[in-house]
Amino acid sequence: MTPSTGYLLYLLFAMGGAGLYLLLPQPGKSRALPGVALSVLALAGLLSVLAVKVIAPSDTSAYFCLFSAIAIFGASRVITHRKPVYSALYFVLVVISVAALLVLQRAEFLAVALIIVYAGAIIVTYLFVIMLAQQSHETVYDTRAREPFFAVLVGFVLMAAITGKAVEPATTSEAKIVTAQFAQQNLAGAIEGLPEGNTADVAAALLTKYIVVLEIAGVLLLVSMVGAVALSRKKIPVEGHGLPTRPLGQIGKEVEPF
């Protein structure tokens, strides 16, 4: 990328940030329309910048643009929607489109693992908690964002810093060599060299080079399981356990059910 695309990207991020600021749930009259307009403009601009850069006839870049757009749209809905259930569902959309982006990079195993673990298990447990804790009406804390302006500002600064690095022309000679190498050996060529299925490679790497990390991950999961059980246990007062007794059948009536 060249510096001029970099400035264009800054502009688009500023627009998107402004749109996001307007879309974040805030009291007062609805500012959805200008927010949507700004965000859509920013997203379209970003896509056209990416598309001009990457689309060549007869390759998969159109899919890249499509799924990036879905992922970004989904992510902005996750943080702007006023109902947590919808946030969780839009997050499923993000996960699926990120999985598609991974398939484009020939990381099929990881893509399916992402869907099974995230969409199939993690988000379902989130939904579970949301369903138990909240019915469909909107609550006050979902309609008032906390410091939306500064949050968006921090996000913008972060984006500016990252893309600034990503599009910055190399200054030192060493950096120039690295950049040249990267440009030469770009992702396109790199990915086409990979075999179609990489499950065996994943397994080989996981069980040789990363075996210790794998063990640690297992221990971590165990610790998390124990922690979750310990955290969410509920002592139900019944007879014969040395606790103050309550008549059976009164739980849910006199005692708080949850």
Binding site: S87, V129, A145, R146
Partner: peptide, 19 residues
Amino acid sequence: SILFALGLVGFFSRRNLIV
């Protein structure tokens, strides 16, 4: 990084623990 920044904005600005 756009996804990351959006997540960051959400984390800073939303008040619902689950969100």
